[in-house]
Design a protein around this nucleic acid. Structure first.
Length: 826
RNA sequence: GCCCGGAUGGCGGAAUGGUAGACGCGGGGGCCUCAAAAGCCCCUGUCCUUCGGGGCGUGUGGGUUCGAAUCCCACUCCGGGCACCA
């Protein structure tokens, strides 16, 4: 399509100028009030895709808008450059992951620049850069000193496809790896963990203070999974009080009188002690089969359908229910998990569905302790009701009975109130090469010892062989592993695991505040100046993983003294953009359904593509890339052509001398209304309606210019300038060029202040009052906006249409909302 | 099962209790042109119409209200999260 201006020339010119003039460089001593606008730093996977474009268009709009509003806006960019794809590429092609990654970074950076997004590039971070790795490792050691990092043997999620362990957060609900799709299996390995569970309560409670999407907060709440209850002791029959105590956790102590049996996890240490010879074979079978399947299979409901009988067994042992004093049988079953609570439960079949099913499969007694509502036909009743068959709890409601039961247990010295979490500690070890090495050496005498800070960063050697073995290539390197113990100088071996790349992304936003620091991760004063991030923008896919880890890490850094003065919540406002779908699937590189932005840069231009993303719909909602999309993008380009003709090609306009006439005043009023509308819409992220308002105004301006009476130049110029100022954050190249042509060489649109408006002028001069009869629209009357109620009613009753409807009858009621509406009720 | 979203013309969407469908795409008609492209102008929910206008219409069924796409109750369908977590 033939364009009104040379798109590519103009876009490249301004991209160069923004970089050369350092227009968006901001320092910690900037006198303007600080704002921190950040898009989640990307994994460099090659040229930008439409998801990036959408993300950075929103971010760039905010940066430019807030800069025009007078803020010193910190807008940094970086790359989450460690990660699996680069290493897999190395195994496939032999190219070193660094080479591969740096090529992808160059591609992504080029397309971000081509989009016209502006950043303080002096602050660029790459997580594989030794200067970043060094502080990543220093932080690890500080967490170790503070007891927030530890090493433990643990059953871990092992992905056969990725040949590494995964964090719980990386295993999908169907038990597969989020990356490879392989079924994740359990293995016991010595691994490094971060003690995120110490912060469980705080991470949960502080969610309430955040201006985040409710959806994300609710996902994090679910993930932390707090449940309040009580932990108490059951005496094992035939064993002394020393050896024979079985601890159970319950959230329903009010149901204790209905505890007719108990269940322990197959891995529970008591199993060996209480199992009788007669039952040993059956118990062993349960234990073996539980160990064989994945945790997910063990938890899945399909197994339940097969046969409950194979999933549990009587141990032959008994414990005493302290509430009833009765002996009850102890079963072993795989539905009880060793890692949650105490690994043992009291079973109350009448008030718990799993216990009900199990009790019925094994013929165990059921005693109701909560009276279900009249006519309840179901199995277990888990709702509220009056207690029965419950001794001193009889007649109480569930909540009160819980309290009494806990008090009784505490008084008797049998138990204590406690809280359990679903959240596990964060497993950070990865058996991969392309990540930040864990800075630890192992000495026979001194165990795991941190590498001294003056020897950091620990860098992996380049001369390694990439093979799909499941171990880091570092383990087979001839020299890397062998070192000396920092304590005794004796021989020691290095840790060859690297850190989860989510560690890198858990503090990069802090490093951005001061990426130049050479003696600490960042200057706390600079971090205090910019933090928290005022607006964080990214995809919903990070709702749990990255956002939870970063919240934890910020707190940990404050608590180990590295970030004094920094707020504990790093991201004040979060915006999660909708994803882009093609053929009902998420558009992504791995699905191979990308529509590359590059072709649009080369044709309609970045401005038109940006405008499309802003105009297409609400930013938070998913968007379908459809057959119509190309046509809408063309429409956006056409709109920009019209703006160009109206603001730059004003040569053949017939200017008129003298003062403003009626239509000039009307146009000025429209300008003020437009500024008001766009300003408000930007604040509430309603970019699609901002664009629509500008389009509407452009139509009006075009009609005004075509007026036979001639055009009043000052009025016209003010309108054209206002339009360019309002579009400046959305379509920066074309508007910057138009501004310079209107105001002379060196004029800079984006250095202008955001336009203000006069509320009196922004009010419409005449408004359309609607007149309803019985709530149905019957007439429209043009009225003065400050018309009062009696005038409005008089006008409405005088209406010909209304008189016809009334047919001489007196209205029974009149509701007037001047100047918008009068409703006459017959 | 529980929790969070969502459903409006042919399509993307707008409307924060007061004109449903702004704006754009697509479609139809016209102007300009030798012609085309570009540009410009008009029409475009649906049914009825004596061409004045009228009926119907925001997933379904109720309710509140002078008035409901919007608020409440009960559903249906779609998307997402959590789920033998005691």
């Amino acid at each position: 399509m033939a364009r009104a201006f040379d798109v590519q020339e103009i876009e490249q010119k301004w991209q160069r100028l923004w970089a050369d003039e350092g227009s968006y460089q901001v320092d910690a001593d900037d006198p303007r009030p600080a704002q921190y606008v950040l898009c989640m730093y990307p994994y460099p996977s090659g040229p930008a895709h439409q998801g990036h474009v959408r993300n950075y268009t929103f971010g760039d709009l905010l940066v430019r808008h807030r800069t025009m509003q007078g803020f010193g806006v910190l807008s940094p960019f970086g790359f989450d450059s460690f990660g699996l794809p680069a290493e897999n590429a190395a195994i496939r092609t032999g190219t070193h992951p660094r080479t591969f990654t740096e090529e992808r970074i160059a591609e992504l950076k080029a397309s971000v620049v081509a989009l016209g997004a502006v950043y303080d590039w002096r602050r660029e971070i790459r997580s594989h850069d030794p200067s970043y790795m060094r502080w990543n490792q220093v932080i690890f050691l500080r967490l170790l000193e503070a007891g927030l990092a530890y090493r433990a043997m643990a059953p871990v999620n092992w992905c056969p496809g990725c040949q590494t362990v995964l964090a719980n957060e990386q295993v999908l609900t169907d038990g597969t790896c989020e990356r490879s799709g392989d079924v994740v299996i359990q293995r016991d390995l010595e691994q490094w963990f971060f003690r995120i569970t110490s912060y469980a309560d705080e991470l949960l409670a502080d969610l309430e203070t955040l201006d985040w999407p409710e959806r994300v907060k609710s996902m994090q709440r679910n993930w932390v999974g707090r449940s309040e209850g009580v932990e108490f002791d059951l005496q094992v029959v035939g064993h002394g009080p020393e050896g024979g105590i079985m601890k159970v956790f319950t959230t329903r102590p009010d149901t204790s009188f209905g505890m007719t049996y108990a269940v322990v996890a197959p891995e529970h240490p008591l199993v060996d002690i209480i199992t009788t010879d007669a039952q040993r074979a059956a118990v062993d079978e349960v234990r073996t089969s539980a160990a064989r399947v994945t945790e997910h299979e063990r938890m899945s409901t399909e197994v339940e359908g097969q046969s409950l009988a194979k999933r549990g067994a009587f141990t032959g042992g008994y414990v005493v229910n302290p509430f009833t004093g009765k002996e009850i049988p102890v079963y072993v079953a795989d539905y009880v998990l060793m890692r949650y609570g105490t690994g043992a439960i009291m079973a109350v079949p009448a008030e718990d569905e799993r216990d009900w099913d199990f009790a019925h499969a094994y013929g165990l007694p059921v005693v109701r302790t909560t009276r279900p509502p009249e006519g309840f036909e179901g199995k277990a009743w888990t709702g509220d009701g009056l207690k029965e068959n419950s001794g001193f709890l009889d007649g109480l409601d569930v909540a009160t009975a819980k309290e009494r039961a806990i008090e009784w247990l505490e008084t008797a010295g049998l138990g204590r109130r406690t809280v359990n979490y679903r959240l596990r500690d964060w497993l950070v070890s990865r058996q991969r090469f392309w990540g930040c090495p864990i800075p630890i050496v192992y000495c026979l005498d001194h165990g795991a010892v941190g590498v001294p800070e003056d020897q950091l960063p620990v860098l992996a050697p380049d001369d390694v062989e990439f093979l799909p073995t499941g171990e880091s290539p570092l383990t087979r390197h001839p020299t890397f592993r062998h070192t000396t113990c920092p304590v005794c100088r004796g021989p020691a071996v290095r840790e060859t695991d690297t850190m989860d790349t989510f560690v890198d992304s858990s503090w990069y936003f802090l490093r951005f505040c001061d990426p130049w620091s050479e003696d600490r991760p960042f200057d706390p004063a600079a971090a205090e100046h910019f933090m928290p991030v005022d607006q964080y923008i990214g995809g919903i896919e990070h709702a749990i993983l990255h956002l939870l880890y970063a919240r934890f890490y910020t707190r940990a850094l404050i608590d180990v003294g590295l970030a004094p003065g920094v707020p504990r919540e790093p991201f004040r406002r979060l915006f999660t953009q909708g994803m882009i779908r093609l053929d009902h699937k998420k558009m992504s590189k791995s699905k191979g359904n990308l529509v590359a932005p590059t072709k649009y840069f080369d044709t309609v231009g970045a401005d038109a593509l940006r405008l499309f993303h802003l105009f297409a719909g609400p930013p938070a909602e998913d968007m379908d890339w459809s057959a119509q999309t190309e046509e809408i993008i063309e429409g956006c380009a056409r709109f920009l052509d019209r703006v160009w003709r109206l603001t730059v090609e004003t040569g053949d306009t017939s200017w008129r001398d003298g003062g403003p006439n009626q239509s000039d005043v009307a146009l000025s009023r429209s300008v003020h209304r437009l500024i008001a509308k766009v300003s408000e819409d930007m604040e509430r992220w309603s970019f699609n309606t901002s664009v629509a308002a500008c389009m509407e105004f452009t139509n009006e301006l075009r009609r005004y210019r075509g007026d036979d009476a001639g055009v009043h130049r000052p009025t016209y110029d003010a309108a054209a300038d206002a339009l360019l100022l309002l579009l400046a954050p959305m379509t920066p190249h074309m508007t910057a060029e138009a501004w310079e042509r209107r105001h002379g060489a060196g004029a800079r649109l984006h250095a202008q202040s955001w336009p203000s408006y006069d509320p009196d002028l922004a009010r419409a001069e005449r408004v359309t009052m609607i007149v309803q009869v019985n709530g149905k629209l019957r007439d429209r009357i043009e009225v003065n906006p400050d018309i009062d109620e009696s005038e409005a009613i008089a006008l409405a009753l005088a209406s010909q249409r209304v008189r016809e409807e009334l047919q001489g009858l007196e209205p029974t009621r009149i509701v007037a909302r001047p100047p918008r509406m009068v409703n006459i009720v017959r």
